[in-house]
Nucleic acid binder design. Structure first.
Lengths: 197, 197
DNA sequence: TACTTTACTTACCGATCGGTAAGTTTGAAT
DNA sequence: ATTCAAACTTACCGATCGGTAAGTAAAGTA
């Protein structure tokens, strides 16, 4: 057995919370997926909320890891491109995480306990910092940095959670096309708006 | 009493589904909000699924209404700007609807019955048509139309559902700023990418 | 006035929920 | 060999879920 039960529970829970949300997922379902009893789960996580909290924590950690190994270029253009690639990559590698975060964004105002943290904040701030640096260097136009980045991040996040629906909505060929084109298109949109011509 | 119980139930249900999702909302809660019994609700909608289906139907109708009164300009630029304004306006006037649709997008692959319809499709197709027209007139660059519009729509939809969280995350001043800047910024991003310079 | 339909109510149901209580098995340390 | 804690199990619980059954009050309609 390569992973601890603890980690396997978090993995199973992440998948199910992504698919059906907090209320739509029962701890029985999560435990059943690993062929252990519900009480085995409750041994590791005393409440459903605590399990959910750990799931969020690990997703946030994965986002942070990507933000942190931040290559330092002199060129703000290269730097924002690199940051964009990391963001796009995150989505493709952690689709479940992206879905859980989107659900958390929807629930945030209602379910109090986690309300204070917005989990993509580090990513947002890192990219805003790059924009502002590029602007002070005269490399970028004077866009409204936060609104600008929020739109870019939003478009990417939205696309990620759309993938399963797009897959069944479009033909195989169309799906393949949009999968290839979306990040290219978003990057171009970002740079066309940002760069002084 | 200005509205029928039927309509008041749909309104109440829309709000609660927006806030807590399908599984997180009980039909008791919805009925309680109008001070009627749960069975009064079940008199109008025989199952929870049917109520939810009607909620979706009315939201889709509101989107369609906006798409349809489509002013015809000769200029594709004016036309895409008008379409963009309508889209942005929709979000501000029907925040609950936007939240329900985002949840539906997340649940879509799991909960079968509504899986076939993607409710923003008409909006998407109308805007794609404008882009292609503008391209054939030489007014727009040769962007990948569907991917392009999907990003714009995604950014807008994402921003809309973020508003409650942003409100409690940012200071009152910052919130006011981003509220003003976001749609301006997104529109600029769209046009900078689209227009031949 | 009698009849029917609409819009409800109270009472009840089995299923499932998250969580408690009380063992049992296992593996490492003394 | 004994102890002890960690990792489970079975049994059970009250609360809440969506939905059924059966009645009632009011409002058209003949």
């Amino acid at each position: 057995m390569s992973h601890s039960t603890y980690q396997r529970l978090i993995h199973s829970a992440t998948k199910m919370f992504a698919q059906k949300g907090f209320y739509g997922t029962s701890i029985r379902d999560i435990a059943d997926q690993l062929d252990i009893s519900k009480q085995a789960l409750l041994h590791h996580f005393s409440t459903k909320e605590k399990l959910y909290g750990e799931v969020l924590k690990q997703i946030a950690q994965q986002v942070m890891d990507r933000v942190n190994h931040n290559e330092q270029y002199d060129s703000a253009t290269l730097q924002i491109e690199a940051a964009f690639e990391r963001m796009a990559q995150w989505g493709l590698e952690d689709l479940d995480g992206a879905r859980v975060l989107m659900r958390e964004l929807l629930d945030n105002p209602e379910r109090a306990p986690h309300a204070i943290n917005w989990y993509l904040n580090p990513l947002l701030e890192a990219m805003v910092a790059i924009i502002k640096k590029g602007q002070s260097q005269g490399e970028f136009k004077q866009v409204a940095a936060l609104a600008f980045i929020y739109n870019v991040l939003g478009a990417q996040h939205y696309f990620m959670i759309s993938l399963p629906t797009l897959k069944q909505m479009l033909s195989a060929k169309e799906y393949k096309n949009i999968l290839k084109q979306q990040s290219i298109e978003l990057k171009a949109m970002m740079l066309d708006r940002l760069l002084v011509h």
